[in-house]
Simulated assay, not measured.
Amino acid sequence: MNNNEREVTIFLANGETLHFTNVSKLDAQAKILEIDYIGRTTGNERKGFFNLGSQNIVGYAVDY
């Protein structure tokens, strides 16, 4: 799924969240969440992979 300017929040089991802005690609297959985004601090294009089968990740949300 290709997306433009979406935001993704990943919810961790310890109650913390990871928040990504400017997400240009979101793909969740086989318990892996893959996102392409622009790093807020560096301004660099980045790719992140998250194991949705991990006990540390309890879910994620996508803002359209």
Results as ranks from 00 to 15, higher is better:
N3E: 11
F11T: 04
E16V: 02
F11Y: 09
Y60K: 02
E5N: 15
G15F: 10
D63M: 12
N14W: 00
G53N: 14
N4A: 08
N44W: 09
K47N: 12
K47T: 14
G53E: 15
T21R: 12
V62P: 00
E34G: 00
K47C: 07
V23Q: 03
N2C: 01
G43R: 08
S54C: 09
Y60N: 03
A30V: 11
I32W: 03
V62M: 00
V58K: 09
F50N: 00
Y64C: 11
M1I: 08
E45Y: 11
Y64A: 14
D63T: 14
N44F: 13
N22S: 12
T41D: 07
R6G: 00
K47G: 02
L52T: 04
I57D: 05
I57L: 14
D36H: 10
A30C: 08
T9K: 14
N14C: 01
S54N: 07
Y64W: 13
I32A: 00
A13T: 01
Y60H: 06
N4L: 06
G48A: 08
D27S: 11
N22M: 07
G59H: 11
N4G: 08
A61R: 10
G59K: 10
Y64K: 15
T21M: 10
N4Y: 06
I38Y: 01
G43V: 04
K31N: 15
A61S: 08
E7C: 01
T9D: 05
L33V: 05
S54T: 09
N2R: 04
I35E: 03
H19P: 00
T21Y: 06
I35R: 00
Q29H: 13
F49L: 13
R40P: 03
Y37R: 01
S54Q: 05
F49C: 04
R40H: 07
G53A: 15
T42R: 09
A30N: 14
I32P: 00
D36C: 01
A61W: 11
D27W: 11
M1W: 02
S54A: 11
L26S: 05
G39C: 09
K25R: 11
G39E: 03
R6F: 00
H19L: 06
N3M: 09
I10F: 02
Y60W: 12
K47I: 12
N51F: 07
H19K: 13
S24Q: 10
T42G: 14
N44S: 14
Y37P: 03
K31W: 12
F49D: 00
S24E: 12
D27N: 11
Y37H: 07
Y64H: 15
I57A: 04
V58R: 09
M1Q: 02
N56M: 08
G53S: 15
A28G: 02
I35W: 07
T17N: 07
V23M: 04
G59Y: 12
Q29D: 12
D27Q: 13
G59W: 12
V23I: 03
R46V: 07
I35G: 02
E7G: 05
G39Y: 05
L26N: 05
V23E: 04
R6D: 01
E45N: 13
N56R: 08
D27E: 15
V23T: 01
G43C: 10
N51R: 03
N44G: 08
R46Q: 10
I38P: 01
N2G: 09
N2T: 07
